[in-house]
């Protein structure tokens, strides 16, 4: 991990009234790598992510994008840097088709009217680059898709604009075994395209299957940041529950 991270957080803090949710957290995500963000409920995972998405700006600390200090004060700022979030409860509109969903809020237009053909071409390219083969037609309504297919569309939505950082919030939480495998493969391919993938997960099996790095939050502090290959499941569980620390393990 010698190279420069795409996105880096240094000592970020966030408080809600008297409650310090993030107490000076360091975090980094690298291009082409999947970084799992794990931690128990209330550890601050969502708060960390919302700051990156520009939904809830941090109170203090530094955010570095490709080594330069930036301010993420609004979802627009995040979008400008190519930071995309795929939310857990699938932010898709059932009554729209796949192309319409993938381009919702950023439609290609000329003279104020839609370039449907161009959007279709780009949507096909995005799905193709993720080797998606399970979708019959780009013009089918999202309501007719299965859970795994919907997750696929939600992720493809993030890559259609060539995102540099994609944040996945519990991408497999609602899926069955086969569909989980499908989505994890998709996450891997996303990283292979040079995207920095940040995956929030409660499922350590998923983490060990697909992630390169794992960062563990415990009560608002980052207790561990290690390569998956250099740690064990017991150690990660220990970091999550606060019974182990990096120093003790080392």
């Amino acid at each position: 991990m010698g190279n420069q991270p795409i996105i880096e957080l240094r000592a970020v803090t966030k408080s809600f009234g008297p409650v310090d949710v993030l107490k000076g957290v360091d975090f980094a995500a690298h291009a082409g790598r999947v970084t799992a963000l794990v931690g128990d409920n209330g550890a601050g995972k969502s708060t960390l992510i919302k700051g990156l998405a520009g939904v809830q700006p941090y109170d203090g600390g530094e955010v570095l994008f490709e080594g330069e200090r930036v301010h993420l004060g609004h979802p627009r700022d995040a979008a400008k840097h190519g930071i995309e979030v795929v939310y857990q409860d699938l932010a898709l509109c059932d009554n729209l088709d796949i192309v319409q969903n993938m381009f919702l809020g950023r439609e290609e237009r000329r003279l104020g009217t839609f370039e449907e053909g161009q959007m279709e071409v780009e949507a096909a390219a995005a799905l193709q680059s993720l080797s998606v083969k399970t979708v019959k037609s780009l013009r089918q309504k999202v309501s007719s898709l299965s859970g795994g297919q919907r997750q696929t569309v939600a992720i493809a939505r993030a890559v259609v604009k060539q995102a540099s950082v994609v944040i996945l919030d519990e991408p497999t939480a609602a899926l069955g075994v086969a569909q989980t495998a499908q989505v994890l493969a998709l996450v891997r391919r996303l990283a292979d395209h040079g995207v920095a993938v940040i995956m929030i997960s409660h499922n350590l099996q998923d983490v060990f299957e697909v992630a390169d790095d794992v960062s563990v939050l415990y009560l608002g502090t980052m207790t561990a940041r290690v390569e998956v290959a250099k740690t064990t499941r017991e150690d990660v569980v220990g970091y999550i529950t606060g019974t182990k620390t990096m120093e003790a393990v080392a």
């Binding site: 279709e120 071409v121 780009e122 096909a124 390219a125 799905l127 193709q128 680059s129 037609s137 060539q162």
Partner: peptide, 23 residues
Amino acid sequence: NVDNPVAREAAQARPEDSLLGKG
């Protein structure tokens, strides 16, 4: 889409692999 390498690559892909225009 000409500026988009991914799109160009997709356009050149074999038709049976392409999702484009299905239906």
